[in-house]
């Protein structure tokens, strides 16, 4: 389910919470980050809601992936939306922590 680029996303819009429920699967890196950026920005253009990003199947994300999440957050904030990151593995949370992004995003870590 990770697609030819090592990453896949699944999504549905939850009307009652005005929120995109997005599952991020696989590894996000410099190769597939542009694809993720297009997908998230297209969702926010389609419906101006919040995003809950379920990362239970995310195995890796690099700085270009973090840049994509920042871009999506900026877009969401244009209409007072938010992005919440859930089920993040502790070793991936470390990257958010050392870059200070744990203070910008609401994050729930697996097993915490």
């Amino acid at each position: 389910m990770e697609g030819v680029k090592g990453m896949d996303i699944q999504y549905r819009f939850q009307e009652s919470e005005n929120t995109w429920m997005v599952r991020l699967i696989g590894e996000v890196d410099i190769y597939n980050a542009p694809q993720l950026k297009d997908s998230l920005l297209n969702l926010l253009n389609e419906r101006q809601g919040n995003i809950i990003l379920d990362c239970r199947e995310l195995k890796y994300i690099d700085s270009t992936g973090l840049g994509v999440l920042i871009s999506a957050l900026k877009k969401a904030k244009e209409f007072n939306g938010s992005i919440k990151i859930t089920n993040l593995k502790p070793y991936i949370y470390k990257i958010f922590s050392i870059t200070g992004l744990d203070k910008i995003f609401t994050i729930e870590v697996q097993g915490a």
């Binding site: 890196d29 410099i30 690099d62 070793y91």
Partner: peptide
């Protein structure tokens, strides 16, 4: 395990920085 993850991330970021 934790150190392997650190090294992997750091080396990939160096590649990113050069390619970017």
């Amino acid at each position: 395990v934790d150190e392997i993850e650190d090294i992997k991330v750091a080396v990939a970021e160096a590649g990113n920085a050069i390619i970017n």
